[in-house]
Simulated assay, not measured.
Amino acid sequence: MHNNFAGIITEDREGYHFQYDSEYLNSENPEPKIALYERMLKEKDKMMGRLEKFIQEK
Protein backbone atom coordinates (compact mmCIF):
# COMPACT_ATOMS: atom_id res chain seq x y z
CA MET A 1 0.00 0.00 0.00
CA HIS A 2 1.29 3.46 -0.81
CA ASN A 3 4.04 1.85 -2.95
CA ASN A 4 5.25 -0.37 -0.10
CA PHE A 5 5.76 -4.08 -0.72
CA ALA A 6 3.35 -5.86 1.64
CA GLY A 7 3.48 -9.48 0.55
CA ILE A 8 2.79 -12.04 -2.12
CA ILE A 9 -0.52 -13.24 -3.57
CA THR A 10 -0.64 -16.76 -4.99
CA GLU A 11 -3.44 -18.87 -6.44
CA ASP A 12 -3.94 -22.61 -6.44
CA ARG A 13 -6.88 -24.97 -6.76
CA GLU A 14 -8.14 -23.91 -3.35
CA GLY A 15 -8.21 -20.19 -4.23
CA TYR A 16 -6.13 -17.12 -3.54
CA HIS A 17 -3.64 -16.89 -0.69
CA PHE A 18 -1.84 -13.85 0.66
CA GLN A 19 1.36 -14.01 2.66
CA TYR A 20 2.49 -10.81 4.35
CA ASP A 21 6.16 -9.92 4.13
CA SER A 22 7.78 -10.00 7.58
CA GLU A 23 9.51 -6.64 7.04
CA TYR A 24 6.16 -5.07 6.18
CA LEU A 25 4.50 -6.51 9.29
CA ASN A 26 7.35 -5.19 11.43
CA SER A 27 7.24 -1.75 9.80
CA GLU A 28 6.05 1.34 11.62
CA ASN A 29 2.47 1.43 10.25
CA PRO A 30 1.41 -1.77 8.44
CA GLU A 31 -2.10 -1.55 7.00
CA PRO A 32 -4.36 -4.52 6.13
CA LYS A 33 -5.10 -5.28 2.47
CA ILE A 34 -8.52 -6.88 2.89
CA ALA A 35 -10.20 -4.63 0.29
CA LEU A 36 -7.74 -5.71 -2.40
CA TYR A 37 -8.24 -9.36 -1.53
CA GLU A 38 -12.03 -9.05 -1.70
CA ARG A 39 -11.80 -7.28 -5.07
CA MET A 40 -9.58 -10.06 -6.41
CA LEU A 41 -12.07 -12.70 -5.33
CA LYS A 42 -14.90 -10.86 -7.10
CA GLU A 43 -12.83 -10.59 -10.27
CA LYS A 44 -12.00 -14.28 -10.10
CA ASP A 45 -15.70 -15.15 -9.75
CA LYS A 46 -16.53 -12.99 -12.80
CA MET A 47 -13.79 -14.61 -14.85
CA MET A 48 -14.86 -18.11 -13.86
CA GLY A 49 -18.46 -17.28 -14.79
CA ARG A 50 -17.35 -16.07 -18.22
CA LEU A 51 -15.22 -19.19 -18.72
CA GLU A 52 -18.10 -21.50 -17.76
CA LYS A 53 -20.43 -19.67 -20.17
CA PHE A 54 -17.84 -19.92 -22.95
CA ILE A 55 -17.42 -23.66 -22.36
CA GLN A 56 -21.18 -24.23 -22.38
CA GLU A 57 -21.54 -22.39 -25.69
CA LYS A 58 -19.01 -24.69 -27.40
Rank of each mutant, 00 (worst) to 15 (best):
2 H>A: 15
2 H>C: 11
5 F>C: 05
6 A>G: 03
6 A>C: 07
7 G>Y: 07
10 T>D: 06
10 T>V: 04
11 E>M: 15
11 E>F: 15
11 E>G: 11
11 E>T: 14
12 D>F: 03
14 E>D: 10
15 G>Y: 10
16 Y>V: 01
16 Y>R: 00
17 H>G: 00
18 F>W: 02
20 Y>H: 05
20 Y>W: 05
20 Y>D: 00
21 D>F: 06
21 D>H: 04
21 D>V: 01
22 S>W: 07
23 E>Y: 07
24 Y>M: 05
24 Y>K: 01
26 N>V: 07
27 S>D: 10
30 P>H: 07
30 P>M: 02
31 E>H: 14
31 E>P: 06
32 P>D: 12
32 P>I: 11
33 K>N: 12
33 K>I: 13
34 I>A: 15
34 I>D: 15
35 A>V: 15
36 L>M: 09
38 E>Q: 09
39 R>C: 08
40 M>G: 08
41 L>D: 01
41 L>Q: 12
43 E>R: 14
44 K>P: 03
44 K>G: 01
44 K>L: 05
46 K>H: 04
46 K>M: 02
47 M>A: 13
47 M>C: 10
47 M>E: 12
48 M>D: 06
48 M>P: 00
49 G>W: 01
49 G>H: 01
50 R>Y: 04
53 K>W: 00
53 K>G: 00
53 K>I: 02
55 I>T: 11
57 E>H: 10
57 E>W: 09
58 K>R: 13
